[in-house]
Nucleic acid binder design. Structure first.
Lengths: 160, 160
DNA sequence: TATTGTTATACTCTATAACTATA
DNA sequence: TATAGTTATAGAGTATAACAATA
């Protein structure tokens, strides 16, 4: 290690600046989201769930009977990638793939009793995670935060 | 297609609810960040930069002479993954790997003249992206947004 | 013995093309 | 012909172990 009095040729590890990037909302959001993602991953682990499988359960719970294509669109993932996710949830008897008599191409996705129970328990745990994350933020600021996030989301040009 | 008057067995594609997930800051943040990420990716494409390569340029610009280990820590990526990123930037003559006489194990990373020029031009473009993203959000709310994001980031327990 | 940069490797996530069965 | 679900596959992004050079 160089002595304290040595000529500084490089910043010490503790003093690396990200001033240029801190100017941008997106950078601050990415850093904040990394913390949230790490915590929610730990939160869901005891239930054998990942962010995407928990989200899938929540969407199916809110929309019983929806199709895999609809679920993929709601989760903003491609249909092929959803197949393995539903396979996993069905294999654990958390969701059912019910046949639709009027259109034998599609499945109607529904939570099983166990799926609904696990979703309820996991949602309680995620509420605990949420409380940890926004601890120290007042109600008014929290409302402003959500409103800003939704405004940014709505600014999507959809250009592809 | 089922007729309009048919018994509704599944919600129409346009009416899928994510009410349960909307309760959570992390979900709203993920949706907002996906929009930001898509737009900034398009913004940086003309410069031949990705989010991570732009971020690397910005950090090197703010901290001339820092090591690869320090840069990796600042970007929150693993050292092995940084090597290929610096390889790419060095190959395009945007950054230099200068030898450090006092410690021949480390490189001192610095922007080349062209690297500094590209960083400046890209940063201007990212400012335009930023303006698009927060259009419609007032100055006060923007300050609250940043403060909330930083508060959430600071809530990191660091538990690993 | 510890650290920097590196290689090799593997695992997850995501994206696309093409197939089947139904409509 | 078009759509739902599926398969196969390829490309990112990310993570760990182990090595050579140097401290």
């Amino acid at each position: 290690m160089a002595r304290d009095a040595a000529v500084k040729t490089a910043p010490p590890a503790s003093a690396i600046s990200d001033a240029t990037l801190r100017e941008f909302t997106g950078y601050n959001m990415k850093r904040a989201f990394m913390v949230i993602q790490a915590d929610v991953t730990r939160t869901l682990e005891p239930f054998g769930l990942r962010m995407v499988t928990y989200s899938a359960l929540a969407i199916v719970g809110d929309n019983p009977g929806l199709s895999q294509t609809q679920l993929a669109a709601a989760l903003a993932i491609e249909r092929p990638n959803l197949v393995v996710i539903v396979d996993e949830l069905e294999g654990r008897d958390l969701v059912n793939r019910d046949r639709v008599p009027t259109d034998r191409r599609t499945y109607a996705l529904r939570l099983t009793t166990e799926g609904a129970r696990l979703l309820a328990r996991a949602t309680e745990a995620v509420r605990g995670h949420e409380a940890r994350m926004i601890k120290g933020i007042g109600k008014a600021d929290e409302a402003t935060l959500i409103a800003c996030l939704n405004q940014i989301e709505a600014s999507d040009t959809g250009r592809s």
